[in-house]
Amino acid sequence: MLPWVYEFHWTPFHIIFLSVFFTVFMVVAATLTTALRRTAKAHATGAAEAILWHSDFEDLAPAARSCRHQFTGDVAHRQCDHAFDCRTCPLHRTFPPLEGRGVSPLTLQEDVLGFAMPADRMYHRGHTWVAPDNEGNYLVGLDDFGKRIIGTADAKELPPVGSRVTVNGTGWKVRTHKAALRILSPVDGEVTAHGGAEDAWTLKVRPAENGNGTEHLLRGAEVRPWIMREMERLQVSFATAGVGATLADGGELVPDFHRHFPKADWDGVLGQMFLEA
């Protein structure tokens, strides 16, 4: 380069100037390459699902990120910092398990604000339920709250039998008349069967051998306060979705109720309720 320029003489100034700027250029290039290399690596190990969830979680409104221990009054106010994965949360471990605390009067009701929330199931914050079947598999389905706000789905895209699902990764996809949704998987494992129209469940999942169990799922006394907060969230998101004031106290959600608000930003509402950015 330079030495071939007519009558060029190197000076210390040249060396400083050129080394600074070519270093900068190299650092930019190296950083970009690092990002690309890490991307290829992370992509190969299937980190995309986890990243998608973490990125979605970061974008959730503060009200949607409240810690489950707020529901039971263990803490007055806390934002989850573990992306709803209580299995790795150190704080979660410090509280005694709910089962040991005796039966709360709330758990006896399976009807929560008009939603059927059977007490023998565990619930994921993304409105799916999990129930173990007698063969040691998990049955996974959409909870009543989720079903009612989605209404009749136009299309459902289930993961093929034999594929793996991970907690907070994509469970399956749903398309309604105005929204495309990703339903989060509540458990780790391998999909072994699809539920038919007559089944209550949607996926049958064989638990992953290295899976961390179901510690992260809501159960018992937590369900009712959780659903109450979800109703609150639904109400706020409606207000921003161009519907205005709705859901005054005391009512229940009618099945397929979104047909009554054709102009609402359903995509926005459902995205918030199913924890998707």
Binding site: H43, I51, S55
Partner: peptide, 12 residues
């Protein structure tokens, strides 16, 4: 961001 490669790249 639905395209996994883009998503991961953005994250990295």
């Amino acid at each position: 961001r639905q395209i996994p490669k883009f998503l991961v790249f953005e994250f990295q």
